[in-house]
Design a protein around this nucleic acid. Structure first.
Lengths: 221, 221, 221, 221
DNA sequence: GATGAATGAGGTTTCATTCAT
DNA sequence: GATGAATGAAACCTCATTCAT
């Protein structure tokens, strides 16, 4: 099983989001790992702490020593993921992109797609949990809002405008551009990950079709 | 409250899906209505039959007289919705569309968007329930597959090809075309329904932008 | 065992305090009875609902169908007792006492002692529970205050003054008189009920000594 | 807060009762102090060792290094208090009293009242704990009996007889005299300590009334 | 001596489901 | 058909106590 991998990924997110320190005990890791797996599989409400404890190989009480309630455990897991979902690579690397005049919109698009595809693949269970549980937990919605800070959005805005000024994409409000790009890429990634294994799917071609669709859709006529 | 409306809508779906008109007793309707509301609000697992009974104004036992288990109640609610999600208006009206040579792709797109928007608005709670619960209940997945019958898909396929032959849209595999159109429209509808009430949103413009984006994205160059 | 007797007594208090209606099911009575016994024996906190259920011969869940929480059960038991502790016979019969001029202080004292002795004996477990738990539950303190209504106190005040005017007892503030009488009688009743069975105790004599002590202590010199 | 004071008091009791001076470490003192406070506030059963540890600022394990079980801690706290409750000042000073012919019953009464009032005020929490827990722990009852040694009682008996022979108080059995005096004084102290702060209470007067009541009640006619 | 993570038994409460009325 | 009291399994969580460090 790949549980170990999932937790490694999650720990990476954790470190990136809290500056690190980590210091998770062995048992804590096992609890987190078990919880991620079962939450993703059955949903938060339908998962019992007993089951988590059994899968983690710890006593049930141990869970509650580290996380005051079951919901606490959920939030502990989700918080760093939310932070990283909403802080796409742009934030880190935007300056470079803006500085380098040679970068065009198509390269940007390919980079975004590549980056998010990676993130999605590395964090499938975690993202599933978030999508499932956000509607039911106001605290999570709050977390979400809290991390939609103006700064990265401003940068993204600048970037879009940059391409518009260069005449590479059509002149629409930033949020519309983001929505249209986002829909197409997320739609592609969603189908790609959800299709049953017995269906033929030429990933390379589908990606190319999606990117071309977006490029044409936003091209200045 | 619009609970009554929701059930009326659901009953319509029920009738359309099972032909006959149900013969639901007053209490059954109240149970269904209460269940839809609370399932949508808190999720299936986190909803107690006691709560449903209270909201429906019936005894807890009454629920189990009509639905053998809680899950039975869920499936009873979801089944007709699944059928109708996957049987877009095309099924009923496709012949007309195909017959009428004058109909162009843009009109078709507008019609699809309009039809799905209506469906979404009328059945928000129901769709929310389905999206939430499908991942956790193999029976529901089965139901899903069962209703992805070849017939409507074949018709849709014919329709896409029809527009491709007329040179109105680019020559891609049908499923890619559907995916690209679907992503954009669903993305638009999703944002439209999810945005908080305090954000400005010019619906007419956004719809137009989305449609133009799709039209350009699929246009033959 | 006298459990049946205790509950009968408690039901009597309940009826007297809520005007009656009773309508306790058989199981409810068994739960109350078991709870009274074990609370008195081990204290509220040290009593488990599991133990109550076992002694009552019902399922644990049944307790929570009737009483939302364990504390609810405690309050349900205690409320009518508090009411009746604080509403001594005087309330009911005071008018008679005041009307009959021939009644003297000694007869009154004997009557009080007799009445409270009866009450104490009939409700030993209940009173024990109250004394134990009141300090820890603000709700109970509130209940207490709520039932120290001005009306019965006013009547008692009138009665004391009545005897003072007749020159039968010394001229002290009512609350001091009540305190002194109360201390002596409660002290007598307490010792009487607490003494181990192997100690000799001539009840008749001790009561007489106590009454004479109070009479002398309050006599006008 | 007066936590420090409480433990100082308790240490004094401890020293007086075991002769030696205890050699309590700093942490032990903090544990005892925390335990006294929380036991008094919430009762023994409702107090968790975790809470004691937190309030004492020690690790939970440290408690169990010093006291084998939670009950052990309770008994450790209570034992010296029981000894001192039941060994009123008489024990130490009785000889003086008996020797000094000039001492009369009234002075004796005043001294008892003063001494017990002091004790009560200094040890309110401790006494509260004892009264709460004695009914539930046979070991404590045993302790109690164990300290009701014949010797101090014999001295008290002698003292009562002494005043009876001098004709200062009525001729009743010693235990009746003690009971009557005790009831009145304890009743006074109880009311004095329990009255809410918003009620007027002239302590000097009330004490005088109580003492006069006892004096009259026991006076030879 | 002190710590605090770990335990597992047991606490209170909730729940879907049954069944006599 | 409808009820709602009753059930008991299982849920979440707390607790006193142990033990390796």
């Amino acid at each position: 099983m790949d549980g170990g991998f999932i937790v490694m990924e999650w720990e990476a997110l954790l470190e990136r989001s809290n500056g690190l320190d980590g210091k998770l005990t062995e048992k804590q890791k096992r609890i987190i790992q078990a919880a991620i797996q079962i939450f993703a599989e059955k949903g938060f409400s339908a998962t019992s702490t007993n089951e988590i404890a059994r899968k983690a190989g710890v006593a049930e009480g141990t869970i509650f020593r580290h996380y005051k309630t079951k919901k606490d455990l959920l939030i502990t897991i989700i918080e760093p993921v939310i932070q990283n979902i909403l802080a796409p690579f742009i934030v880190q690397d935007l300056d470079k992109v803006l500085d380098q005049e040679y970068t065009n919109f198509e390269d940007f698009l390919r980079a975004v797609e590549q980056n998010r595809k990676q993130f999605l693949e590395n964090n499938l269970s975690l993202i599933k949990i978030i999508l499932q549980e956000i509607p039911f937990h106001p605290e999570l919605k709050e977390l979400f809002k809290q991390y939609v800070t103006p700064e990265p959005l401003a940068k993204l805005d600048a970037l879009i405008k940059h391409f518009q000024e260069k005449g590479e994409i059509i002149d629409l409000p930033t949020y519309s551009v983001i929505r249209l790009i986002g829909s197409s890429i997320i739609g592609y990634l969603f189908v790609r990950n959800m299709i049953p294994s017995d269906v033929v799917w030429d990933d390379e071609q589908e990606r190319e079709r999606t990117l071309q669709f977006v490029l044409r859709g936003l091209k200045v006529e």
